[in-house]
Amino acid sequence: MSLLSIENIHTYYGNIHALKGVSLNVEKGEIVTLIGANGAGKTTTLRTISGLLKPREGKVTFNGEDLAKYKSHEVIYKGICMVPEGRGIFARLTVTENLEMGAYSRTDKTEIQNNMEKAFTIFPRLKERRTQVAGTLSGGEQQMLAMGRALMSNPNVLLLDEPSMGLAPVLVELIFDTIQDINKSGTTILLVEQNALMALGIASRGYVLQTGQIVLSDSAENLKKNPTVQKAYLGME
């Protein structure tokens, strides 16, 4: 049984049929990537998993449990946390307060403190800026904060929506290295990326989404070699 699986979900924005029967599954300990062009429905898929959107059809199961009965704020208690597209940090809260909000679902104060130390070890830059208001961080630092904040909930599965967006190549490297480290320490990862090459570089498997449907799914190795993928997402002719 997969840790996370979504079966045939249909998600709408009003009348707009954004996901037309998407199915995918993520095994414990994996990094799985979901790639696709702009507007394919990648963000919609993640928002559906995290409960911000309710699918009209199909279901999301986590650890064998149907998530349909949970409200969006209850999903994190199940062990799923999302780093939203554009980071979604609380700009007027300090770095520390943002991290504390990441731990909102938890109550053990010493555990939270340990987690914060851990986040600061992963992202030493955040420690330097702990009292700073988050809105004044650089783009890269904001991405670190968004990831650190998500880790504060000790998630089993981390959903990452375009973590490399708008970052300089060096920072992209750093973020991807960190994603691998986080994965090695036991967190399963579902990674949405425009940067397909980087994503397939660290993932074990991948899905390709096109206008609300999964058109391809294979191991990362094979996807990198697939001519359609190369043409459409890796910029190769």
Partner: peptide, 17 residues
């Protein structure tokens, strides 16, 4: 703090639980 977070972004606040 949660009040301040909600006043900034309701859906992200919900994601945080």
């Amino acid at each position: 703090k949660a009040m301040r977070a909600v006043s900034e972004d309701k859906s992200v606040a919900a994601l945080m639980g």
